[in-house]
Design a protein around this nucleic acid. Structure first.
Lengths: 216, 216
DNA sequence: CGCGAAACCTACCACTTGGTTAATTCTTCA
DNA sequence: TGAAGAATTAACCAAGTGGTAGGTTTCGCG
């Protein structure tokens, strides 16, 4: 059935498997309590090994965190954020960009853990000494630029062109995504994140929902 | 010059002074790195005493945090958020409520430390086990309700009445405040918080700036 | 199978954590 | 001034931290 060399989907080695198990555990625990509050022993235990065993796969706690962040971005890049963090790949259309943003939010609504991780870290990372500081500065910059570009195109193409500054609205949109998460994490029932985002976009004369775009 | 009993401004006792010194230090350090990442020894050293000395004034780390939060709210209550967190005191007018929100934001723009404190804590506090969890749930609820009330009144009174759901817009407004802070902390120059908030309000047909309200 | 390498564990290190105790110094006010 | 009480300390504790050293098991492949 499976000819060797035919399908390059060989079973990952044991090391690779535990490595991803560790990353999953780290994600889960960092999400619950933040970076500083979680110990390597916690993560290791959750992944089913000793903390010394964990340190065989990652040089240290900090490296584990950064690996996790990159890993997550790469997952997002598959179909969600190609250009944002992966470099190259063709620039998506403005509509695509926005609907991808909404996709990320919608998917986030199902994974409070990951959302909490980013909320926690982006707050901690305001300290320039924090290991993830540069990562977040860069990340926001990239997402902001892409969103501003998309908004600028849509604003110009709108029937009565929208005069708002795309950069400012981009900041606003991303801020809304983050702020909604804070409230949603504290009281999930009090906030409908995707609906709120769509509401804001509609206020700016932009409707990213393809289902609702009939006469465009 | 100062008759005893005339002015009730007696010099605070040594205990009271160090107590506030401790609170100030705790605020500064929690702001930089969050609750879990700061030790009582750090705070005590910053305040100029031993951690044992600190524990003479506060029963524990957790109590210190809650005291800090309450302290902060009481300071905000003087002229900014009377009803929100202080109970009683007459409900301010809708315009007042919004302009107070803007005042808080404007003042926050000058104190990154405090902003970072709340950003950090509200993220950490998503964990129901966190000592400040209940505090933040309650806080958001109160601010949300007040803002929704104010927006509802303004929407109804607008020339062509605004049809948006005040509750939803309240969530949005507060989310924007929080989210802007995240980006502002990472890159202060990239975000003008008060301007952004005013922009959103204007989009909803509300202008909270008294200087700009001529024909109302 | 057999053997080298990767994976993993036990035991340890130096250090930090929040908190306690008991003794000592400093304030305060009658 | 003097004594009660508040303020503060040094010393200590048990528990936990990230990280290391060195040995043992397990994997994977020729």
């Amino acid at each position: 059935m499976s000819h060797p060399g035919d399908t390059p989907v060989r079973r990952p080695s044991k090391g690779e498997r535990t490595r991803t198990r560790i990353l999953e555990s780290a994600s889960a625990l960092f999400s619950r309590s933040g970076f500083h509050a979680v110990s390597l022993r916690d993560i290791a235990a959750h992944a089913g090994l000793t903390h010394a065993g964990l340190l065989h796969h990652f040089p240290g706690k900090e490296a584990l965190l950064l690996e996790l962040l990159g890993h997550r971005d790469r997952a997002d890049a598959q179909g969600l954020f190609p250009t944002a963090l992966d470099a190259d790949a063709p620039e998506p259309s403005p509509e695509q960009w926005l609907s991808r943003l909404l996709d990320v939010v919608a998917r986030n609504s199902t994974t409070p853990g990951l959302v909490a991780l980013y909320a926690n870290l982006s707050a901690e990372a305001a300290d320039p000494e924090h290991p993830a500081h540069d990562y977040f500065v860069h990340r926001y910059r990239v997402v902001r630029e892409g969103t501003a570009r998309a908004l600028g195109a849509l604003f110009a193409a709108a029937d009565p062109p929208v005069t708002d500054d795309p950069d400012a609205v981009a900041v606003q949109l991303i801020a809304l995504m983050d702020g909604l998460q804070t409230q949603w994490l504290l009281e999930p029932d009090a906030v409908d994140m995707p609906a709120q985002l769509r509401a804001l976009l509609r206020r700016y004369g932009v409707d990213p929902d393809p289902a609702a775009r009939v006469s465009a």
